[in-house]
């Protein structure tokens, strides 16, 4: 077998990794840069993290992001798990129809999804006076784009489960609820957890949908960073971005940890 192992290939790959990582490295480096502005700093400092902690606007954005992520993840994990379970079993009339509806939030460009929910909220507000733009509309919107991903992960886990465990429990006389509580749910758990982590990461990462559906007082981290970019960056924003990068990495690692378990069980 010939395998192209030319040095230029590895060199090109190294250059492309530089392209992928240069933005991340520069932001993290700037967050520890003592001279504040400019790229040519020399002294290391944690000062910006300190001032960040005292920045009320930034801390409120952190709280908003976490609140939005947690509530939408809770909702989408519940709905997505049920959907994933429903789609994992035998085919039934209408399943293909449900599957194509499920794909709509995935293929929709995020800006179109964002404005369509903006218009929905306007319309509902006009009819009923409810659904002011803000945290509730953001939770509704985030849950919508999270559901398909949770459902896909849970469905894959359910379909890959060894049926002999459930058969054994049934043979031993387990009732339907016993079967679900003691066999199906524990086996399904890593899939649900992986789906929830993915949903949370998607929510934390979202800018476009939040940008259009947020109201006064519901600014999230990406929105705050975006508006700071327009007004002029401060070292604190680099520190904030570094924290966001770090938490995204942690979530991804945690998600990867749930997978080896899959293989064992």
């Amino acid at each position: 077998m010939i395998r192209p192992q030319k040095p230029w290939l590895l060199l090109a790959a190294a250059a492309l990794f530089a392209l992928l990582y240069a933005p991340i490295v520069v932001v993290v480096a700037q967050s520890f840069n003592g001279s504040g502005h400019g790229v040519s700093g020399t002294s290391l400092t944690l000062r910006w993290y300190g001032t960040l902690m005292q920045n009320e606007v930034a801390m409120r954005a952190v709280t908003n992001s976490l609140m939005l992520g947690a509530s939408s993840t809770l909702l989408s994990t519940l709905l997505g798990t049920l959907l994933g379970l429903g789609l994992a079993g035998q085919a039934f009339p209408g399943r293909r129809w449900i599957e194509s509806i499920l794909h709509v939030p995935v293929i929709l460009p995020d800006i179109v999804m964002a404005i369509s929910i903006l218009l929905l909220s306007h319309w509902v507000r006009k009819l009923t006076g409810l659904m002011e733009l803000g945290m509730p509309t953001m939770i509704l919107a985030h849950t919508t784009f999270q559901i398909p991903f949770v459902a896909m992960v849970v469905r894959a886990r359910r379909s890959g489960m060894d049926p002999s465990w459930e058969e054994a429990a049934r043979d031993l006389g387990a009732t339907r609820s016993q079967l679900f509580r003691h066999i199906t749910l524990p086996l399904l758990w890593p899939g649900i957890l992986a789906g929830a982590l993915l949903a949370f990461a998607l929510s934390l990462d979202d800018f476009v949908v939040s940008f259009f559906t947020s109201g006064p007082g519901s600014t999230t981290l990406p929105i705050l960073i975006h508006s700071s970019v327009r007004r002029g960056l401060t070292p604190e924003i680099h520190a904030l971005s570094t924290l966001l990068i770090g938490s995204a990495l942690l979530l991804t690692l945690a998600g990867a940890r749930t997978r080896p378990q899959n293989a064992e069980k």
């Binding site: 992928l20 933005p23 991340i24 934390l204 960073i225 970019v229 971005s241 966001l244 990068i245 995204a248």
Partner: peptide, 8 residues
């Protein structure tokens, strides 16, 4: 890098 926010 995909898990780093696009705004950042």
């Amino acid at each position: 890098p995909l898990w780093t926010n696009l705004v950042v």
